[in-house]
Nucleic acid binder design. Structure first.
Lengths: 110, 110
DNA sequence: AATATTTATCGTAATATTGCAATATTAATT
DNA sequence: AATTAATATTGCAATATTACGATAAATATT
């Protein structure tokens, strides 16, 4: 137990869940916010922006990267992270799709 | 440890993280999908749709409800759940905002 | 080559999540 | 008032997540 039964669900469902889960932490939202705020997609001074230790932030970045939300490229001895627009637009598509279907439905019981 | 430092982050960040986290599980994505597929927002036969025991599904529904993504109204001895359009449109707004900011940015290093 | 800077990894403790069986609760039906 | 049907709650085991100190790895700079 404690393990998700990923086998049962569709690829799309698992993929979307992975993406949403990666975003589902305030530190990672804050990282995304910061990546947007800073014009160029600068990296490691995120450590100064958040109340977290460097290893913790590195871990959060890793999770965002594993999910595919951000990508990083080595830039000297620093690493430059930025949001993957393609992946984000997929996310947006999903949320849009659901919103549209919600509008189409007239029969709301709640 | 193991506890998220919610105190530090902004309300918006925490709220968005809570919403995303609630969606961040394939079973809950499947529940959302099902709620959309069924025209009226019927409830408890979700148990027949997913490979999960009834208590587990009840728990997932509770999490979606606590996050505000779905709402439920008592309908006889059954409960009718459906997605909260307002909350969903907030979610959509966030993903849209990020997508727009991404487009504005020319300077991508990755 | 030694040092500094930046990021990643390892190990570990605390807590949270996932899932289920058993049981309770609530409302309808007989 | 029993019985049935639909959900919720409780308690628990297995696993995952969050966070950090210590340390390693990689590249720049001196």
């Amino acid at each position: 137990m404690g393990t998700t039964k990923t086998d049962f669900y569709t690829n799309d469902q698992n993929k979307m869940a992975t993406l949403a889960k990666a975003i589902g932490h305030p530190a990672r939202i804050a990282i995304i916010d910061y990546l947007l705020k800073v014009n160029s997609c600068i990296c490691g001074d995120i450590v100064n922006e958040l109340p977290l230790a460097q290893p913790t932030i590195s871990q959060h970045l890793k999770e965002l990267k594993n999910a595919g939300i951000i990508k990083g490229s080595v830039e000297g001895n620093a690493i430059c992270y930025c949001i993957d627009e393609k992946v984000w637009s997929n996310l947006l598509k999903y949320f849009n799709k659901v919103a549209q279907k919600l509008e189409q439905k007239k029969s709301n019981c709640c």
